[in-house]
């Protein structure tokens, strides 16, 4: 019996810093995946043109959209990974509870999302520099100013948190039963097929519209934050039901 008592906040803090160190390699993969996305984006994310008798115009558009998509995938995989048993066993280095473990995991995902969103959006500048210096292209920047950059970071962060929360819940469910490893891909691919059959879209397109087509910032923040919180609470509840250590 230990006479030492530690507060939940203290435990979470210790576990959070430990997880930053233990999961540092996930940030290496973030760098790798973003560099890969930058390479894929070098051809431009879209192009258009116009032709006349004497003037032909070809326009190539650059944007860090693909980098953000790759970062979202990274966020999802990272969130699933930290729910796996080897990662959960790290927690037993400390006096721990399921709640403190989950809270430190969420804090880790918040940090990962901050880093992911900032680097993803700044990678657009690296993309521009490569096209300007290496590809020798005449580059025009029609991007907005600093105020929109802040908006971009906030929105990208919320997307990453939302996807991270989805990954964390799915990872938690997989810990309950390995059947979910099969069930989720089947469900996802099945839904994609249904999207092609149903005229007005099914779940995937409606979910996409619900978040990605929302043009009112206040509503978007509300939707993403509430969904992420709900998903995290569901994941915490599921992980609390797991045995202490198997």
């Amino acid at each position: 019996m230990s006479l030492t008592t530690t507060s939940l906040a203290e435990t979470v803090k210790k576990q959070y810093f430990y997880k930053l160190k233990a999961n540092i390699d996930s940030f290496s993969s973030l760098v790798g995946i973003q560099i890969l996305a930058i390479l894929f984006s070098l051809g431009g994310i879209s192009s258009s043109g116009m032709g006349g008798s004497f003037v032909n115009v070809n326009v190539k558009y650059y944007s860090p959209d693909l980098v953000l998509v790759f970062t979202l995938i990274w966020s999802f995989i990272t969130a699933v990974t930290i729910t796996t048993r080897p990662y959960r066993n790290h927690d037993f280095s400390f006096v721990t509870s399921r709640l403190s473990s989950s809270l430190s995991n969420i804090l880790f995902l918040v940090t990962a999302s901050v880093l992911g969103s900032v680097t993803a959006l700044l990678s657009g500048n690296l993309l521009q520099m490569i096209s300007y210096l290496i590809l020798n292209e005449q580059l025009y920047n029609i991007g907005s100013g600093a105020e929109h950059m802040v908006l971009g970071f906030v929105v990208a962060f919320l997307y990453l948190m939302l996807i991270g929360a989805c990954g964390y819940l799915i990872g938690s469910l997989i810990q309950v039963s390995k059947l979910f490893v099969l069930l989720f891909p089947i469900l996802f691919i099945g839904l994609l097929f249904l999207e092609g059959v149903v005229t007005n879209g099914f779940i995937v397109s409606n979910v996409y519209k619900f978040y990605a087509m929302e043009s009112v910032l206040f509503l978007f923040v509300g939707k993403t934050v509430l969904t992420a919180v709900a998903l995290f609470i569901a994941a915490i509840s599921i992980l609390n039901r797991l045995e202490v250590r198997r």
């Binding site: 431009g44 994310i45 879209s46 258009s48 116009m50 006349g52 008798s53 004497f54 003037v55 032909n56 115009v57 070809n58 326009v59 190539k60 558009y61 650059y62 944007s63 860090p64 959209d65 953000l68 993803a120 959006l121 657009g124 993309l127 521009q128 096209s131 292209e137 005449q138 580059l139 025009y140 920047n141 029609i142 991007g143 907005s144 929109h148 950059m149 908006l151 971009g152 970071f153 906030v154 929105v155 990208a156 997307y159 990605a212 087509m213 929302e214 043009s215 910032l217 978007f220």
Partner: peptide
């Protein structure tokens, strides 16, 4: 003239709220 332009646009998280489109480009010229 063959004009090749490279245009750096906002990322989707910004375009979602500014209403810019990455598709449906329009030109007027010549």
């Amino acid at each position: 003239q063959n004009i090749d332009l490279s245009i750096a646009t906002n990322s989707y998280p910004i375009r979602q709220f500014t209403g810019e489109f990455i598709q449906n480009h329009y030109f007027s010229s010549g």
